[in-house]
Design a binder for these strands. Structure first.
Lengths: 214, 214
DNA sequence: CCTATTTGTAGGAATTTCCTACACGCAAAA
DNA sequence: TTTTGCGTGTAGGAAATTCCTACAAATAGG
């Protein structure tokens, strides 16, 4: 009962590289269904009625227009649309208020981690507004960090080894337990930290100096 | 014998969102070992000798400096370094020449697909220079597209269904073959198109109108 | 017409994912 | 203090996935 129906997603991001890497991330989630993508605002508006997205993920600064304007037009065309704006800079409370006023459901800045984007997307899927806890400063994985500190000894060992890309088999051997046990640790670690795939853990461990392999 | 030793990668990208999503991509490859990351050029230079990367992936336009300058400094500090520059705009032949002159191994623009980045990274890992085929215009998955057209009938059917997130089991049933067979198709499709994970296929199919699931 | 490759089909082994289980210890509640 | 309960170390099972290998029929090139 995580989420009811699929998220019909439309993505408007100018640069292909960012759009692609965002989409690769987002599409890993089964609930995300891509219904369209554009580089520009006008193109987005043109294709809106044909694609009928539930969520529009759109950059604030587009080549041809600004995202806010496009979002407003889109909302007038299709009021049920949930708009998630990606801003280039951290969002001040004042700006945020303006956005919300305009009917935008959430704003994520490019200075926030990608995971934030997915999280926000999941939140606003049903038309709810979502304001992330502290999106002003360089907050960063505060949740994950707290969770990490709460890991048990064994879990940390495994987390460390996994982040160093040590194969499960070797970890099991080193710790003198069965592979199954290692997998259990892995599962628990991922659940506790809220991660889905190895790169997330690697990156996290690296960033918190817990990952030094050698 | 795909690649000899691991790629010791240092990433300098200003915006967290882009950096993260690029890293998530790149770290999916076992051969990539992240040794450091920075948002700024000076920070990169400071940490260079401590991290000793083999490849420096750096944005052209940094907040504090321009990537080219930083790259040149980095190269004088550590001549064995392979620098991969990420430019904001498509790269003209002239600019490319200047970059190569400066000792940069390759340039990828943000208007190119992410896969291009990984491909390039793999190419330059051993110090070779890599100039992608046509990086001027909106080329785009020309390889994959050609490969797609060369898929056999059965393969296309499976590709289509998989892109629509139909479970393997259901595909097998629909086509009246065993799950194993479907997996074989899947493997072949991925090999032929040069993809690694489902989102790539989904995106590709979507972009070429082959993915419409009703 | 004959060899070489592609295509449709599938099996096996190793790994991974997702659950469930369960004893033990420590901590809070009674 | 005795009980109840949650977290931790440990592991098993089922299903799915990945990575190979196999092999006959179809087909394309000579």
């Amino acid at each position: 009962m995580v989420g009811q129906r699929k998220i019909r997603l439309y993505v408007t991001v100018g640069q292909r590289m960012l759009r692609d890497s965002l989409l690769f991330q987002l599409l890993l989630n089964d609930d995300v269904e891509l219904v369209g993508e554009s580089e520009t605002g006008v193109d987005t508006l043109n294709r809106l009625s044909a694609t009928r997205p539930g969520v529009l993920l759109i950059e604030e600064n587009l080549q041809d227009n600004d995202g806010l304007t496009i979002a407003e037009s889109a909302l007038s065309l299709q009021p049920s649309l949930s708009v998630l704006l990606i801003s280039d800079t951290p969002v001040s409370t004042g700006r945020l208020a303006i956005y919300l006023e305009a009917g935008i459901k959430a704003v994520v800045s490019k200075h926030q981690p990608v995971q934030e984007l997915m999280k926000t997307l999941l939140y606003i899927r049903n038309g709810q507004v979502y304001v992330s806890a502290r999106n002003t400063a360089a907050d960063d994985t505060p949740t994950a960090l707290a969770a990490y500190r709460a890991l048990s000894g064994r879990e940390r060992e495994v987390a460390h080894l996994m982040a160093g890309r040590v194969p499960v088999r070797d970890i099991a051997e080193q710790l003198g337990v069965s592979c199954k046990t290692v997998h259990s640790y892995k599962d628990r670690i991922f659940v506790k930290l809220g991660f889905e795939r190895l790169p997330e853990l690697i990156l996290f461990m690296h960033r918190h100096q817990h990952g030094a392999t050698s």
